[in-house]
Amino acid sequence: MVTCTKCKKRNAVVDLGYTGSDLCSPCFIAYFEHRVFKTNREFKLIQHGDKLGVGVSGGKDSAALLFVLTKLTKHVGAQLIPILIDEGIAGYRDKAAEKAQALCDKLGLRLHRLSYKKVFGISMDETVKKRDKVKWRGACSYCGVFRKHALNKAAFDLGCDKLAIGHNADDMAQTILMNFLKSEPARFMRFGAFSGITERDKFVMRIKPLMYVTERECAIYCTLRDLPFHLQECPYSSDSFRGELKDFLNSVEEKHPGSKFNIIKSFLSLKELMVATPVSEKELKHCAKCGTPCSGENCKACLLTEELKNADGRVAETKQITKNKKK
């Protein structure tokens, strides 16, 4: 048995490779919460009086986020509003939603729900069926855009000042590498503890209180706190660039503990230096259809839903052309 390096009394249950410490259950819980509280102080994420939307999915990251925020907001004096976006994936999100509801019941919080069907007129199940008829995209390409849009809409409609999302250190390190490898300097510069456009009408600023805790630590925290969470792979998840980076980073972390945090720290240090140099960015507009801030005439979510709505017509048109050619 390994003894906890912090209290030196109880048996350790967790090894934190990057700190060289082994922690027992109470010491790990205290460590995890301290990391989140410290992140909040460092970036001044949550202020007294904030009405804070919290994106919950029923998964481990958002379960850990919501639970730790109930503690944090008691100290700070802010209101929590859990929001669940239902993508409409039968047999997946419905099960996860049950866990999210159970957690909210446990915490005495009302869970607000909004579905893709209600916002975009189409569920993810329907989107996947229709995507073959238009320009084929991976399911995550639709879902990522739709979820971000729907969460923002729900938070805005509920009058939230900020929206906390469960992005952890793994997500942060992956995104930093992705933006770097795809050469997206504008996205690179916008990325950080605060996400997206920070001051804009109809846009609720996203914050990431879990940016200095890993995905594995979120799962450990939920397990030790006995929080209800759902563990199941999304039926539409596919091998993506992010997935490749996830595997790569986990291999690197195993051999060189602390690498994920070093990527984040290096990025934030670089960003500080780069802010002094003006970065040319396209002037932001508002989507002509839904009013969401975007760089073009329409936002990505409206472009995608319009494309899907026209799917049947396009197929008919394509078939007609083929038929005529045969003649």
Partner: peptide
């Protein structure tokens, strides 16, 4: 890879 999950011994999270 230990980084990808949790390890339980006889049902309990274990070092």
């Amino acid at each position: 890879n230990l980084q990808t999950g949790l390890i339980k011994l006889n049902g309990k999270l274990t070092h």
